[in-house]
Design a protein around this nucleic acid. Structure first.
Lengths: 241, 241
DNA sequence: AGGCATAATATTGAAGACAATAGTCCGGGG
DNA sequence: CCCCGGACTATTGTCTTCAATATTATGCCT
């Protein structure tokens, strides 16, 4: 069994050295870091377009709106800036980042690269349990597709990609992918996150390649898969604005 | 068509950390954001091993040491955390990140991936001026090698890789690579950053591949090149600690 | 009337103060 | 002698306050 797996949700690893006592729920329920709550709230507001690109974010305004002081807001701004959500101009405050067409393309290219690599690594390191789990996730998605449960479909899609990433067992790669994925989901509204049944057929093909241990084929399939998603989402909303 | 190129090609110089911040020219000459100075100072201290992995960083302590209040220190911690330099545990403060052997390997694998992709993109989009510039940088490094000017060699090496990255013209890729590179330079002390003449021969081969527009060959050469650097640095200091 | 300089206002950057919590040390009991 | 409990200390998290700067409005001059 691999060492630091199944820890993809939290921050960068190295926090989990405790051997046994970890199953209790509550990864970050300690003193409820206020800055994290503010950060999450703002990300949600940005993704949901409640805060539009280019909009100015006043510290005091947000502080009062969220019922906290300015300091947690400032610290949240720092994190938002480092993850590319806002541009922070000194002496002028924070502005919601305005994504360029080209920047969106760049982001998707990187996403394709990272996803393909994760598939390659997965094919090299998968175990039988991994394959079983993948098929299980695939089944969940397929059933969700049958009843047109969009929420479940999006969730299953994300879970499957995340698990492939986990099999790769590269925390740095996982972390970068998590960052990139969130921004992708912002630029291209999550509507087209699942693009019908063909996507799940591709997923099945991907799982088979991983099960066979065929690294090149797995990477290639994932590349095409992600690239196809790019095309769909891009053509769907690109020409609009 | 490249728009936003010619951006930062040089090394990530962090020279301003003194009390008097009066940068006449420079990217950020506005009011000299204090948090950035603190951030740079701390990165320098971490890379130079003045702050050892696992060490606890007291806010007040550092604040007094740097002659500022705790707030800029806290904001610098945020940035340090998001770039993987420190682990931030709520209610407990900041600790210098302890890199695992595996984590270092993961980081280098990602670096290889990103560099190879940059080479591929460079081969696809290079112009004649780019090639000329690359040869110019190569020449600088070669001359530095002849006189054994280590500083110049490291600089030329970084500049060449950075320019290849710039040719690729993908801001997201560039940004991620910058992040990864800094941490690589931390884990593996910059001693072996240039590993003699063979490295420059490989660089020459890389430039030729880029000039020919041979994407696969350029990516392959860069992959081998980075991988070879990994081996050298890893074997050199891996068994020590 | 239009443009520029100046003053008033609002917002950010930084510092200090206060409260709460984690860690530590000492003492008592088993 | 070891273990447990409680108070103390130190540090973090948050709030409030103060100074500096950018923005805006107003009035004067051309």
């Amino acid at each position: 069994m691999r060492d630091g797996r199944k820890s993809s949700a939290g921050v960068t690893a190295a926090a989990d050295k405790s051997a046994g006592i970890r199953a209790v729920r509550g990864p970050v329920a300690r003193p409820a870091p206020l800055r994290q709550a503010v950060f999450d709230a703002l990300v949600e507001l940005i993704i949901s377009r409640s805060l539009k690109p280019g909009e100015h974010l006043g510290e005091g305004e947000l502080a009062e709106m969220l019922g906290v002081s300015r300091q947690p807001v400032r610290e949240a701004f720092q994190q938002l800036h480092s993850e590319g959500w806002v541009d922070l101009r000194p002496g002028q405050g924070a502005f919601v980042h305005s994504p360029t067409e080209k920047e969106a393309d760049d982001l998707l290219a990187v996403r394709t690269l990272l996803e393909a690599e994760s598939a390659r690594r997965a094919a090299a390191q998968r175990t039988d349990e991994d394959i079983a789990h993948l098929w299980q996730l695939w089944d969940t998605g397929k059933k969700a597709l049958a009843v047109q449960d969009l929420e479940q479909m999006v969730g299953a899609n994300a879970a499957l990609h995340a698990y492939v990433m986990d099999i790769g067992d590269n925390t740095v790669l996982t972390e970068l992918s998590r960052l990139v994925d969130r921004r992708v989901r912002w630029y291209f509204t999550p509507v087209a996150a699942s693009r019908g049944s063909s996507s799940w057929d591709e997923h099945a093909e991907l799982i088979r390649a991983i099960a066979d241990g065929d690294q090149d084929r797995a990477a290639s399939i994932m590349r095409d898969h992600t690239e196809r998603t790019r095309r769909v989402t891009h053509d769907a909303q690109g020409p609009e604005e």
